[in-house]
Amino acid sequence: MSDPISELDLMAYVDDQLDAERRIAVEDHLSRHPVLAAQIMDDLRRRDELRLALTEAAAARSNHMLELPAERLGRRLAFHSSLHRNRRAIAASILVGAGWFAHAMFGGLGADPASAAHILPVYADEAVAAHRTVLVEVRHDGTAALNLVQAGAAGASIPLPHLPSSFAPAGSHPVPSERGNAVQMLIHGPDEQLLTLFAVETDSFNIQPPQAEAVRDVNVAYWQSGWVAYVLSGAADQKELLSLASRLSR
């Protein structure tokens, strides 16, 4: 025999706060009290009307101004969440720590820490693609491409490094990136060499000094400063690019 139905039960029924058993008890009670049932239906109708009207009003507002902050917040939360997971994983690993340590000490993992540090970031591909595109445009019609690049709005929120005096900016524009906001800057470097600097917001905060590598036949130097990663691409060899990059990343 269940408890008698109270006003609180009716309220919780309308607010969908009851477990299945109690819901059934309330519905049974309502089926025997048609006037009360009609009143409850009225409350439910009002609740649904409110949901609908507010949803319509909310959906009518433009999300344009929210895109950037929502993206940034999402990335911070994702980063924070992964940090949290890692912390828990580390805590768990302490339980088997002694064994793991012995294993690692004697090379059981077989992983080379140096190679792990040289995993090419995924945005390097995008940077190289954007670099090639601009080079093609410049080769076809140098001035037009530069004008085009100059006309584009520079990345609204991505900090670009301060250029030393031997570097002359030719323009910058936003470029598509899977990872969020990205900006490409066309630069005349020392000795009139044409460089592109690709800057993209990342999911994780990091400080990483420049490293050089070849990506699809283009030499790049990449580094990260805070939330933003940079890729410098150009025709110079890796050593020179690395030295240019370290001047920019300072």
Binding site: L66, A70, E71, L73, G74, A78
Partner: peptide, 8 residues
Amino acid sequence: MHPLLKDH
């Protein structure tokens, strides 16, 4: 919009 935020 970021997947963590889009439903909120």
